[in-house]
Amino acid sequence: MSILIENLSTLQNVIYIISSMLFITGIKMLGKEDTAVRGNFLSALAMFIAVSITLVNVVNPLIIIIGISVGAIIGSVIALKVKMTSIPEMVALFNGFGGLATFFIAWSEYSTTPENSFQYILIMLTTFIGGVTFTGSIIAYGKLSERLTIKKTSLITKLFTTIFYVSLLYLIYSTFFTDIFEPNFDFYLILIILTLLGGIFFGVFGCNSRTWHL
């Protein structure tokens, strides 16, 4: 049995290598006008292969099937129904959802006790990056769809800039100056909240609808 599992995991890794080759070729083709459509298809194929081979050793298919179906329906409806002119903010929204997924993965990893300090550092950084991506992209979505206007000199901007720096300091403090290996929810909760609020800073500064070529 153990030999079988070992072989399966080797096979999975070989297929991951093949799918990363397809991804790279896909991006390369996406950069030239005449091959762009095929490039996009190729990278979608690579994604399909990578996801399928991961699903081979599935233990509890129900939550995965429900999760993927709900995501597929919501994603497809948004992508196909939305007006052509509001595509930029949709891309921002999708990017935010990707960040949120990363954030949840890191959170879940945190609650299953990290094995060593390096893993601990990675989990903290991933939480931060995922959370910042999510809230930053949501603000970018609001600004691009013109539902939200924030002036760069306003009080809100100053407030969130401060929160961002505080969150960065807390990240550094919590990652490098503490040795907490047992999940400590209160301590981690502060990081989560600061990270999510701090991400707004990127949305306020890093997005300008005039920079889009569409």
Partner: peptide, 25 residues
């Protein structure tokens, strides 16, 4: 958390590819 992560990641995947395809067309 795993359920939420799978859901949001697949919104990103499906939405992202379809939107890109629409733009390229």
């Amino acid at each position: 958390l795993a359920f939420l992560a799978v859901t949001f990641a697949s919104i990103n995947v499906f939405g992202g590819y379809l939107v890109t395809n629409r733009m390229l067309k």
